[in-house]
Amino acid sequence: MQSTAPQGLKPGFGGPHFESVLRHADDNLILAQRLSAWISRAPDLEIDIALGNIGLDHLGVARALLSHAGELEGNDRDEDDLAMFRNERQFRNLILVEQPNGDFAATLVRSLFIDAYQVLLWRELSSSADKVLAGVAQKGAMEARYHLHHSRLWAIRFGDGTDKSHHRMQQAVDDLWRFTGEMFLSDAVDHEMMEQGIGVDPSSLADEWRAPVTAILEAATLEVPTDDYQRNGGRQGFHSDHLGHLLGEMQWMQKSCPGLTW
């Protein structure tokens, strides 16, 4: 794969191909970090194992894509450099994935929204002209379908459960809905990638995402919020307060003892 990275280090922008791969890598890295925080803390053993394993799938995707992004950039940064030595403004993930775990309902709804998005995203990227990205997407597509199957069942169980579980689920849906619009925004990076046959136009996935998500929320007796206000900026490095705290914890060891290995 030809690198589209410009010569010399330009902090913050390594070319559209690098940026595009980094966005997908960061979504998965940050979500993996969030999900792994449930290990030994989940409401029951089944959920504990499930969230840990789903997090592991996301981490595997993140590692493959961060390594690939490093190669595209051509500045000798490997997966660890990109994960551990970038600051908050250099992360390109959706604001949705950095939102706190909250109660189990918040974690579940966050996953439901992302899983439904990744099912479509990976399906489209499976035929990318970037063979590495296509390879990751082909695996990711199979895994995302299983993740969605899991989040769907729990959404219905809790949404259509007790008054308390229903209320918490509705609260989570209402709180997180404003971060879903960002998944479907397109910018110059996306357009460049579409032209090269590498990427997908995120806005083309919006309707197809909405249909199953609406159906799941309705099956869970939950109300679909209105789209009045939508946050965005994550793709450009403008994040919510939560990302900095997450990175503080995730990167602490490498920043204290750079180069430390197992």
């Binding site: 993996a32 394993n53 997090g55 592991l56 799938d57 996301h58 981490l59 595997g60 995707v61 590692r63 493959a64 990751v136 695996k139 990711g140 895994e143």
Partner: peptide
């Protein structure tokens, strides 16, 4: 090739 993306 890995079975799952994050296969430990």
């Amino acid at each position: 090739t890995p079975t799952y993306s994050g296969c430990p």
